[in-house]
């Protein structure tokens, strides 16, 4: 097991009476992790603590083994793409990135080369010498993304990077994040668009009201929500035969026949169910055409957890 990228133990951050984070505990990484939660849950506070823009009031926060507050060397190892930020409107994208890189301490020639490369990576080469003031919302997002990766950080923190980005840009950004992951970078990305998070990763951190309500593998999290048996839909030409086989498993709570050629199984332990299914199909010669669960996605899990387990609507 590799070291966690981010380790937060009981981290608390207040702004006067306003609570940013409240006893935030999570272990994050490696790879891509999705940070999700309602507006005002504390996501942006968490990001700003991670890059050392804010200081924790209490608790312990380790990022890549460092305490982010006041650690100069550490700043170069993270890239941060804030949700809202002002760009220097009168600059061209390339000059903007070059000057940021020079502030980071790169020599002029290297800063220029890295800026050009980062802009190419986010697909803005054609517009790189235009002033930022002419950029659309989606292009600005990509400039922010480019500045977060230009210095080749080990950890990239992206706060709503897809907000306002058009469909082509979204596909490009998602594919970029996967490339970064494959090249060994770690990414923490927040998004309100759950199906896009789900497409990127199974690793999530879900927060509400400054607290972590769940973190880790999405499917494990779902399995842990015992209050609601997992509903699994199966399509087969022989529902009765399949039902007989499945009924033998003791975690199966109920089996319904909602329609022609269909079967709905409720299981208390999806882990065991899915674990046993391939073997059963092969051994018993079952003909299962389709299998899936409407409960086993981020949307459903988010709803269970953020609404205090009121179940699907």
């Amino acid at each position: 097991m590799t070291d966690p990228v981010i380790q937060a133990v009981d981290v608390t951050k207040r702004y006067g009476e306003v609570l940013g984070l409240n006893g935030f505990t999570a272990t994050i990484g490696p790879g891509i992790t999705g940070l999700i939660g309602p507006n005002g849950a504390g996501k942006s506070t968490f990001f700003r603590l991670l890059v050392g823009q804010l200081k924790v009031d209490a608790g312990d926060l380790r990022v890549l083994g460092y305490n982010p507050w006041g650690e100069g060397e550490f700043r170069r190892m993270v890239g941060y793409c804030p949700e809202h930020s002002t760009l220097f409107e009168w600059m061209t994208a390339r000059d903007f990135l070059t000057s940021l890189l020079r502030v980071d301490g790169f020599p002029k020639a290297e800063a220029h080369a890295r800026a050009t490369e980062a802009i190419a990576t986010v697909g803005l080469s054609e517009a790189q010498d235009r002033r930022l003031v002419t950029y659309s919302k989606g292009m600005r997002q990509r400039v922010k993304l480019a500045q977060s990766i230009a210095h080749d950080p080990a950890l990239i923190l992206l706060d709503e990077p897809l907000n306002g980005v058009d469909p082509v840009g979204r596909a490009a950004v998602m594919s970029l994040l996967r490339r970064l992951q494959r090249s060994g970078r770690h990414v923490l990305v927040s998004s309100h668009v759950l199906y896009e998070v789900e497409r990127l990763t199974d690793q999530i951190v879900m927060i509400t009201n400054g607290r972590v309500i769940a973190y880790g593998d999405l499917h494990r999290i779902r399995s842990l929500i015992d209050a609601h048996p997992h509903v699994i839909d199966i399509e087969t030409p022989d529902p009765r035969g399949v039902a007989r086989v499945l009924a033998s498993m003791d975690h199966v709570v109920s089996i319904e026949f909602p329609g022609e050629g269909r079967l709905r199984v409720q299981s208390r332990s999806p882990e065991e169910f899915y674990g046993a299914l391939p073997g059963l199909v092969v051994r018993e010669g079952l003909d299962i055409r389709a299998v899936g669960s409407a409960d086993d996605n981020l949307d459903a899990v988010f709803r269970y957890l953020s609404e205090g387990g009121h179940g699907p609507r």
């Binding site: 674990g275 391939p278 092969v282």
Partner: peptide
């Protein structure tokens, strides 16, 4: 499913 059984993986969705 045979492939899944051999590889020891869970089929979470097939459709």
């Amino acid at each position: 499913f045979e492939s899944a059984a051999e590889a020891g993986v869970q089929v979470r969705y097939l459709g």
